[in-house]
Computed example of a mutant assay.
Amino acid sequence: MENIFVFLFNSIIVSTIICAAARLSNSVSLKIQRSFCFYCDHNLAWFDIIPVISACVLRNKCRYCHAHFGHYYAILNCLIY
Rank of each mutant, 00 (worst) to 15 (best):
L79V: 11
Y81D: 12
L30G: 08
S25A: 12
S25Q: 09
S25D: 15
F7V: 11
F38D: 05
M1T: 07
F5K: 15
R34Q: 15
N26F: 03
I50A: 03
C40K: 10
L76C: 11
T16C: 14
S54K: 01
R34D: 15
A74Q: 09
C62S: 06
C56Y: 11
D48Q: 05
N60R: 00
Y72V: 02
S35Q: 10
C62H: 02
K61S: 04
I18F: 05
I17K: 09
C56V: 06
A45G: 06
H66A: 13
N60V: 00
C62M: 03
A74Y: 02
F36K: 02
Y81R: 04
I17T: 11
A45L: 15
I18Q: 09
L58H: 07
E2Y: 13
I80D: 02
S35W: 02
A74C: 12
I53Y: 00
N60H: 06
I12F: 03
S25R: 13
C19F: 02
A45M: 13
H68M: 12
C62V: 14
S15Q: 04
Y73A: 03
I13W: 08
R34E: 13
Y39W: 10
S27D: 13
L44P: 00
Y64E: 11
D48C: 05
C62I: 09
S25P: 06
P51E: 01
Y72K: 05
V52L: 11
V52A: 09
N10S: 13
Y64D: 10
S29F: 13
S11Y: 00
A20N: 12
F5V: 15
N60S: 05
N10A: 10
C37K: 04
S35H: 07
I50P: 00
A74I: 12
N77E: 07
H71E: 07
I12P: 01
A55C: 14
N60T: 01
A22M: 11
S25H: 14
R23I: 04
I18G: 03
I75A: 09
A45I: 03
R34A: 15
W46Q: 04
N10D: 07
F36C: 05
D41R: 12
L30C: 11
V14M: 08
F9I: 10
R23V: 02
I13D: 02
I50K: 01
L44G: 00
Y39H: 15
C40P: 08
R23H: 09
N77L: 05
C65I: 08
K31M: 13
D41Q: 11
S27H: 13
I53E: 00
A55G: 14
S29Y: 08
F38M: 06
